[in-house]
């Protein structure tokens, strides 16, 4: 049995907390551990923050929207997968291979560390990035739920 949700938000920093909490709440259906849930929150926060600070940085963009879609996929046994797609219609990325490198940032003057994509990659089970200059960016991430050993699992809803 799978589940689906779609969330469209204005690309404003005040929506970052809402977006990560909404995805985390949706993920509860897969019965994640506390650390799995916190990984998901962090990765979503990275992708959404990038839309706010990079995608729509220039004034040209009229409609500044972020689309967040989530799909769950349950395994026969315990656990499953959470698939997350985060789309913006902003400036796009010139060189995606360079952008994902640790410490690469185009905003070092703003105290950015260039770790956003590295964090998404290490905290999630699967990650892909697609971008077109002037059109926008799509980040796809999957988190496998229930892979931790049972004895170390601490239920997020306990």
């Amino acid at each position: 049995m799978s589940n689906y949700m779609k969330l469209e938000i204005a690309a404003k920093s005040e929506n970052e907390g809402f977006a990560r909490s909404a995805v985390a709440a949706f993920a509860l259906g897969l019965n994640p551990s506390i650390s799995e849930l916190s990984d998901i929150k962090t990765a979503v926060s990275e992708a959404v923050t990038n839309c706010v600070v990079h995608a729509y940085a220039s004034e040209r963009h009229g409609e500044r929207k972020i689309l967040i879609e989530c799909q769950t996929e349950k395994k026969q046994t315990e656990g499953g997968f959470l698939h997350i797609t985060i789309t913006d219609y902003g400036c796009g990325i010139e060189d995606v291979d360079k952008a994902v490198l640790p410490f690469f940032t185009t905003l070092s003057a703003d105290e950015r560390s260039g770790m956003g994509f590295t964090i998404m990659q290490t905290f999630m089970s699967d990650f892909s990035l697609k971008s077109e200059k002037g059109k926008g960016t799509i980040v796809k991430m999957t988190k496998e739920i229930g892979v931790e050993k049972e004895e170390v699992r601490e239920r997020a809803d306990a």
Partner: peptide, 8 residues
Amino acid sequence: FMDSTGIG
């Protein structure tokens, strides 16, 4: 909660 903005 902290994300990469916290690192910066």
